[in-house]
Design a protein around this nucleic acid. Sequence first.
RNA 1: GCCGCAAUAGCUCAGUCGGUAGAGCAUUUCAUUCGUAACGAAAAGGUCGUGGGUUCGAGUCCCACUCGCGGCUCCA
Length: 645
Amino acid sequence: MIKITFPDQSVKEFEKGVTPLAIAESISPRLAKDVLVAEVDDEAWDLTRPIDKDANLKLFKWDDPEGKHAFWHSSAHLLAEALQELYPGVKFGIGPAIENGFYYDIDPGEHQITSADFPKIEAKMLELAQRKEEIKRADISKADALKMFGDRGEEYKCELISELEDGHITTYTQGDFTDLCRGPHLPDTSAIKAVKITSLAGAYWRGDEKRNQLVRVYGITFPKKKMLDEYLALLEEAKKRDHRKLGKEMELFAFSQNVGAGLPLWLPKGAALRDRLEQFLRKIQKQYGYLQVITPHIGNKALYVTSGHYAKYGKDSFQPIHTPEEGEEYLLKPMNCPHHCEIFKAAPRSYRELPLRLAEFGTVYRYEQSGELHGLTRVRGFTQDDAHIYCAPDQIKEEFLKVMDIILYIFKALKFDNFEAQISLRDPNNKDKYIGSDENWHLAENAIIEACAEKGLNARKELGEAAFYGPKLDFMVKDAIGRRWQLGTIQVDYNLPERFQLEYTGADNQKHRPVMIHRAPFGSMERFVAVLLEHTAGKFPLWLAPEQAVILPISEKYNDYAYEVAKQLQAADIRVEVDDRNEKIGKKIRDNELKRIPYMLIVGEKEAENGEVSVRKQGEGDKGSKKIATFAAELTEEVNKMINQ
RNA sequence: GCCGCAAUAGCUCAGUCGGUAGAGCAUUUCAUUCGUAACGAAAAGGUCGUGGGUUCGAGUCCCACUCGCGGCUCCA
């Protein structure tokens, strides 16, 4: 008999060689039906794999990430099995589970696979799944594995095997398909009830662009048909929220072939929106003691040589601008920090001036690879809501707390309730990779950890994720449909103060080197607007909306009154338009609902007589009539509540 | 940058086998003057991304480029 310990620390005895599936059956038939995969003493474990010794056991279902992972991993094998039947002779690369589904990289040989083949592949997968094929694990020696896959011409698999340690190689087989795999897998294929092949893409073998390009087939599967439908509906929703589509529809920004790829043009409404965001941030920053500066869009190449960026990124960025002067070279500004360092150096600095907080909405240009450009989230020219804080090492924590205040305030005003924080720390086993003294790193890392603790922020710590010049704290927001976006960032930097030889005179009348903190609560105006669009599906909070209200006269007879109302509201700083088209009121309401304008004010005979407007809220409907001044006051109140919580 | 896919009216899209381009919405005009999600009629709107090639003839087939999309790689 062996002792099995469950997560709640209860212990039960079982026959030696019992399987997790049998244990689940002993608990309840329902659990046995739902369980997908297990973990035995922290090792992922197939449900049908015997347990030979006392162990800790965890059972995972669909709702557990481990359960989904095994489900999709087995689905990847199912996909491979289907492809093997449909396209004899294809060679297999790797086929892992990913965040949403799985993929398999294949070398199709002479076969051509296109999206038109998806239904065929899906049907074959379902057919195989319904055969309830057992997925069998087997240990295999390295020599046998090489022979087995070698005989089949599986050159990619052989390459993988040749790098594995003998004695730790396993295969999984279902039906006629055997794959090199560590597992774990589902007991059989029958749990896979719904299949969708989602896309096709090229991917280099082992991510190396010098190697063969394979075809990557992406798919997703579910244990219930209904779940697939829900997932597809979610994808549809995501498509509707795509900021590229909304940006065009709402006339916020555009791109032009003639201007160039990745260079956004801000249309009047988008520019006004961006300006509101800037004003919002300027106001808070002023309260927090930031000093606004302005620096040029280009800088002498020497500046970036000093900062070290030229050596690292020079050849991959926009190429130098040459002047009539022999040998003189300027670069488009790829970041604001070197400029700000020069501002720090523009005068001798005293410890009394610290922390010195220099802020700039600085437009920078980076030559992103053409394939990487994406709407407003990845562009070649963008404006950072940048600031650099120069402070003494013992001020880091205090400054961190203040920056976090600003970021949390912004998230609150914009209803990003669902966010995560990540602290990126140094890899303790590889300290040579980093610049700066042990003592300073220690100080900065602790400052960040303590600051998060003080704010009650449950931040994830990631070792080895820090930049070479310092640790950082990143904020990830989840949008309304659960996608994760990186926005605000705070980074400690020991490198630039060193390179620019920044100094201040301390209380001890000695020269000291300041620490620099980079921070950008929005990240960039472009990305922030994109995320805001996708988060809100274009329904901006009232204080940001391009138009806060639109006045809809019942007929042209009331256009004059509508313009009178508009004048009064505009005088109260409300952004309002008049829809004076010669259309029926139903049509105007529909059109303006679709334009996502927060308030519609309907005016006709009754309203004109009483000096009122009939208020209709977007998405909610009729709210009744009120005096013009009452509406104006209520709207202003609503806006103030949002930005001055 | 690499692989794959696409580019047709302002927008969304159709266009069969190669035979000179079509719908809905938007726009303009006319009619209507309307009470909380689409009234009606008509007109206008296109060098089919750009350049080359094949062909008697190219939106359609081929090549290159540009831009876009999905990935890969990269990301200060």
